[in-house]
Design a binder for these strands. Sequence first.
DNA 1: GAAATTCAGGTTAGCGCTAACATTGGGTGC
DNA 2: GCACCCAATGTTAGCGCTAACCTGAATTTC
Lengths: 339, 339
Amino acid sequence: MTARKPRIGQSRATLSDVAAHVGVSAITISRALNKPDLVSEALRQRIDEAVRLLGYVPNRAARALASTKSNSIVVLVPSLSNAVFVDTLAAVHDKLYPAGYQMLIGDTRYSPEQEEKLLRTYLEYNPDGILLTGFDQTPAAQQLLAASNIPTVHMMELDEGGRPCVGFSQFDSGYALTSLLLAKGYRRIAFLAAQLDPRTLRRGDGYRAALQQAGLYDASRELTEPNPSSVGMGGGLLARLLAQAPDCDAVFCNNDDLAVGVLFEAQRRGIRVPQDLAIAGFNNLDMSAWSNPAITTVATPRYATGSEAADMLLALMAGRQPASLKVDLGFELLARDST
Amino acid sequence: MTARKPRIGQSRATLSDVAAHVGVSAITISRALNKPDLVSEALRQRIDEAVRLLGYVPNRAARALASTKSNSIVVLVPSLSNAVFVDTLAAVHDKLYPAGYQMLIGDTRYSPEQEEKLLRTYLEYNPDGILLTGFDQTPAAQQLLAASNIPTVHMMELDEGGRPCVGFSQFDSGYALTSLLLAKGYRRIAFLAAQLDPRTLRRGDGYRAALQQAGLYDASRELTEPNPSSVGMGGGLLARLLAQAPDCDAVFCNNDDLAVGVLFEAQRRGIRVPQDLAIAGFNNLDMSAWSNPAITTVATPRYATGSEAADMLLALMAGRQPASLKVDLGFELLARDST
DNA sequence: GAAATTCAGGTTAGCGCTAACATTGGGTGC
DNA sequence: GCACCCAATGTTAGCGCTAACCTGAATTTC
C-alpha cells in the first residue's frame, strides 16, 4: 500500500485517495472499477461505497495515458444542420456508447481542408477509431490517416479500392430517380442542386447519364448553387430555372428541402404540380411526405449507415476481420403524388 | 538532455523523439510548440522541421495530465436533430475553437437522467468549462456540478437565482405571441406542442396566462404530445384538435415544423388559412418563411445565445467577472400572412 | 500430505508531457 | 571590472492511472 499523498485544497479525489480511504492499494481500486471480477465481493462493496463517499471520478487523461487506449472515436461529418448526418450520428452513438466509446464529433462544413484540420486536432486525442464521410480527403489528410494506423471506416459512399466503407451508390440513386421520371413520361427534366459536395455531384452524374442515354440531356436544365440547401433556396432555384429553361416538365431536386421550396414557389406562380411540373426530391426528409402533393423522393439508409459503419469499426478495432469491407445498403425510390 | 528512449515498432513519435532528433531537451520542444517566444528563432525553425519530418502529433492525454488543463468544454444539448440547438452549437464552436478549446458534444435526448449520465462521463475528461441547456438538471447532476467546481453557463433560459445564463424568457415569448393573436381578433386560440421539454412548458404557461387574463382560456384547446415534433405530427395534432375543439380560430404551434404540418393538413381538409384558421409557429425555421401563406412565428436568438454563452464561459474560465451573469437576448415576433 | 494451481491482492515502473526551479553565458550599468 | 540581469535552455519531479510481474495464502490433485 502506497502512502497517502497530502492533498491540498479540494481538488478532485484520485484513485489513491480512495485507496487510502479503504486501506488497500491503488491498483485494487483500479481493478474493482475496471475488472470487477478480479476483486472479492466484500472488498468491492467497500470500494464502491468509498467511491460514492469521496465523489471519485476517474481521470480519463490518466487512464488513456497509462493504457494507451483512449476509448474515443472521431466522427467527422460535413454538417450538423443536415438531418442526414444527424441521423447517422445518432446511429453511431447508439452502437458506440454501449461499447464504452465516446464520440468526438467534428463538423467539416463540407470542406476537405477543414476536415484535415479537424483530423490533425483530433488525432491528438489518440482515438481508437475514425469514421469519415466520403472519400474526398486531402492528400495530407490521407497521409495523416495512413501514418496514424488507426482503423478507419468511410460512410455514405462506396469505394472500389478496398477501403472499409458503408453506404450506397450515389450515382445509381441519381440514375434511378431520373429513370423513374423518364418512365413516367417526363422528357425535359431539370436538375437543381445546392451544396455541391462530392455526393451531390455523383448524383448529378447519374442524372446526366440517364438523360444522355435517352438522348434527352440538355445542359441548360442543370442548375447548381454552392451554398447549403434550404427551402428558401429551392424557390430561388426554380425562379432561375424558369427564366433559363421555361419548358421543363420535371425537376429533380438534390434534397427534399429544395423540393419543398420548389413546390411552394410553383404554388405562388400558379404552376400546377404535377400537371405542369413534376417535382422529385432526395433523402426522404419528414416534410416531403406531408406536403400537397406529397413529394416523390429517394429514401436513403441514414440510420443503417451509421449503425453498420460503427459495427464495422468495432470489428476492425478488435482486430476482427469484418464480414465485408464494403457494405452497400442501397436506397429506395418513393414515388408519390408530385410526379 | 535526456537519453533517447528506444522505440519499438512504429508507434507515434513523442516529444523526446523530436528532442533527440534536434539535439535538445524535451522541454524545449514543448516550449517551442506552446510558448514559441521563449525559444530562439533559429532553434524554433529546426524544431518545426523535425516535427514535420517525424510527423509528431502531441498527445492530448499527456498534456492534460501534466498541465491539469484539458482545453475541452462539455456542451450538452437536448437534441441534435433540432435546428435550434445545432445553430447554437455552431456559434459556440465559432467562439471556442479560435480560443483553443475542443467541444465535447453530448445529446441528452431531452432527458435529465441522460444528461446526468453524460455529465458523469464527460467529467472524466476534466473539462475546463461546461455549457448546459436550461436549468432542469437532476439533483445528482447539480451536486456533481457543484462538487466539480467547473465554470458552467446555462443556455436558452434565464435564472433568477444568479446562475450564469444566456437566453430569453420562454414565458414572455409564449405570452407575446398569444397576445399578438388576441390583438388580431382571434378568440378561440389552441396550443399544440410536441416534445414537452421545460421550455415548451414555459411557453405554454405564457400562452395560458395571456388567455386567462383575457378571460378566454379553454383547456380543451390545449393539445400536447411527448414525442419529438415534426411536420407529420403537426398534421396529426390538427386532426386531434379538430375532433376535440372544432371551433378554434387560431393555433399556436410550439415549433415551426408543427405549424407547417398543420398548414398542410388544413390544405388537405379545405380549411382556408388564415380565413378559417390562423396558424402561428415558433423558432423561425427556414421553411416557415416560404410556405403559402408564410407562417407567423417567433424569431429566437439561437446563434447569439451560443455566442454569448461561449463568451461568458471564456470569461469565467479566465477568472474574469463577466459584464453580467444573466444575458437576456430577447425574441422577435414575425407577423406573416398565416395570421 | 507435498506439489501444483488458483485466488486476491501488492510492487514497481512508466505512459508523454509540463510546472517549477536551476543553470549558463552573454550583455548592462557605473 | 564587478555585481546584476535577462534570455535561452536544462533538470527534476510528478500529473493519475494501469501493465506486467510478484507474493502469500487457500484450495485442489492424486
